[in-house]
Computed example of a mutant assay.
Amino acid sequence: MASTSAPRNSAAYGRIASAASTLCSDNHTLIAEIRKATMMMKEIAVDLERDNESEMVKELEDGVLELVNASDECTYLSNAIKCIGNEYQPGPELTNFSKLFADKIDRLKADPSSVSQNQLLLRQFREAIWNVHHAGQPMPGEEQEDIVMTSTECNLLNITCPLTGKPVTELADPVRSMDCKHIYEKKAIMQHIRSKVLQGRCPVTGCPKRVLADRVVCDPLLLIEIDEMRSISKQRTGADVIEDFTQLDEED
């Protein structure tokens, strides 16, 4: 009699992979909502700082810190779900998924390359508050060069579309590769993918990845991160204007 274990394992693997994909998508949506909330809290805190409501600003900062930590945990969980969904193979014994997830998350946290990108949100929050009354000045404990480095940081891998040359903040239909994480204008990258000459190679110089049509998407975080970049650009512009006026006053 032919063994039925292979088809059963295959079916179980398919269901687990599908469930993992759904959970990852839901988790990314939650992370995106957290990012939206931190941006909104930053804008409110800036207004409160202008009104010298320091205690309320501190309460908002504490709230942002909690959200950032929650976002980190969601990110670890999402990565663990993705890994297990890709790697899991049903065995003859029941799987303790709680332990499986806990072990995977612990390994992800212990990985030196697994550095939190969400801490940048807290850094940007504090910088926005500082700039209300101290635009152009280093934050306590920082040098002038640190302002340039941190104020221009964001989670986007590229800030212009390599095909159209437009800033990602001006793209009509931005999408991101699930493989190399580069961002493009959707219409332009789809034309690029169809090009037989270029064979679907990523148009970013030096990127070895191929870009596939079914792996170029507008993921839940992309639009949020683009909004964050717009916010950072506005802050930098405001700080530059204030600094220019200060220099004019000094010359007079």
Score class of each variant (00 low, 15 high):
N69I: 09
T75F: 03
A239M: 05
T4I: 09
I31H: 04
N9Y: 13
P162E: 08
M39W: 11
A110G: 14
S151T: 13
D252A: 13
T160M: 04
I159V: 11
R210P: 00
R35V: 10
P92C: 12
Q117P: 01
S3Q: 06
N69Y: 07
I44T: 15
M40L: 14
I44V: 13
P220K: 06
T169Y: 06
K109A: 12
V217W: 12
I34R: 00
A6S: 10
E143R: 11
D173C: 09
Q119K: 03
S3I: 05
F125K: 02
R215S: 07
C202N: 08
C24N: 09
Y76S: 03
V217C: 00
N79D: 14
V217M: 06
E59I: 00
I44C: 09
S5G: 05
G85A: 14
A2V: 05
R201P: 05
Q119L: 07
G200Q: 05
I189G: 04
I105N: 07
L222E: 00
Y184P: 01
G136I: 01
D26P: 03
K187C: 08
E43Y: 04
K166D: 14
S233H: 10
I147H: 00
S78V: 00
E127L: 07
L67V: 05
M40D: 15
L222D: 03
D146F: 12
I44N: 11
M229C: 02
R236W: 02
N52F: 10
S18V: 05
C218K: 08
G238D: 01
C161V: 12
S113V: 06
K36I: 07
T169F: 10
A110H: 07
S116H: 02
R123P: 00
D111L: 11
D179R: 11
T4E: 08
P174Y: 04
